[in-house]
Design a protein around this nucleic acid. Structure first.
Lengths: 154, 154
DNA sequence: GTGGCTGCAAAGCTTTTGCATGTTC
DNA sequence: GAACATGCAAAAGCTTTGCAGCCAC
């Protein structure tokens, strides 16, 4: 996605907030702008740290509340991880994830670049699927060249 | 998997432990037996609770240590979840998961029942994939019939 | 007998909650 | 001005750690 598309999403965000019955605050704009501009799938503390340069007085609890709210409203999604910290993603176009077991980095795999799976499951499973999440586990190029052991760093 | 296959895996487990340089203890046998016999993807506390009927004196910290060790040795795998509790799975044959957004239940989708994805990614991604994890999100049959809202219970 | 394992208790993190103050509409 | 959002601090999980005693080999 180009930078133009990002700034457009940021520009449209106040409208989306009001449409969802949410007030527009500098804190919420900062959280959304940070998330939409990165492909690093940050955890709440990453967001908090990044935002403090803009809004020094922001509190970590507020970041948690905002992320919860955004996820509830469907503005961001929470990525499934094995670890114990939540990671968020504002990229909502269909895509999958490449999870590096060595450095923990989560890389995007856009839907257009790899055939997406169909959502319709055989009726025998008695399950109404609304979304699919695919994670490839392994080593990213940088880590495999360094022969890093799994979970060396995060 | 039939009950026979389960008891066989339990019977072979002491051998696997020793081969991996681990001592065989009642606690470890209980954890493994519990995990291999269920399809509920329990969290550490579930394991702890279930095992206390066999080994009343077992400590939760020990359960955590054992699960960590088993995962390190490849005896079990840790399932990626959005929540903040770890969930484990002793079923290591290729399979995917159906995650119910209402009740949180994780159902298995065996590899043979649904075409598995190939692991080879186009070279341009510079990623060495060793495993794939697919989660279908949605509502299980029971919850969709009850018109439960998402995350009503866990 | 020895090394590794367990159980207990305490500490460490992440996340949530309550409430007074401040802001948006 | 009213309703909602924020910030602070405290509490509530979940998970890890340190260490003395115990057990498998």
């Amino acid at each position: 996605m180009g930078g133009g598309a990002i700034s457009q999403r940021i520009a449209e965000f106040p409208k989306r907030c009001r449409a969802a019955g949410l007030k527009v605050t500098p804190q919420r704009m900062a959280v959304y702008s940070m998330l939409i501009a990165t492909d690093r799938h940050p955890c709440p503390d990453d967001v908090y740290t990044a935002i403090r340069s803009d809004i020094p007085a922001i509190s970590l609890a507020t970041v948690y509340k905002i992320l919860d709210l955004f996820q509830e409203r469907g503005f961001v999604r929470r990525v499934s991880t094995e670890g114990q910290v939540a990671r968020y993603d504002a990229m909502l176009d269909p895509h999958h994830h490449l999870v590096c077991s060595s450095c923990g980095r989560i890389q995007d795999l856009m839907g257009g670049e790899f055939p997406p799976l169909q959502l319709t499951l055989p009726a025998e499973f008695d399950f109404q699927a609304t979304g699919i999440e695919i994670q490839f586990h392994g080593q990213c190029g940088a880590c495999s060249r360094q022969h890093k052991p799994a979970r060396a760093a995060d």
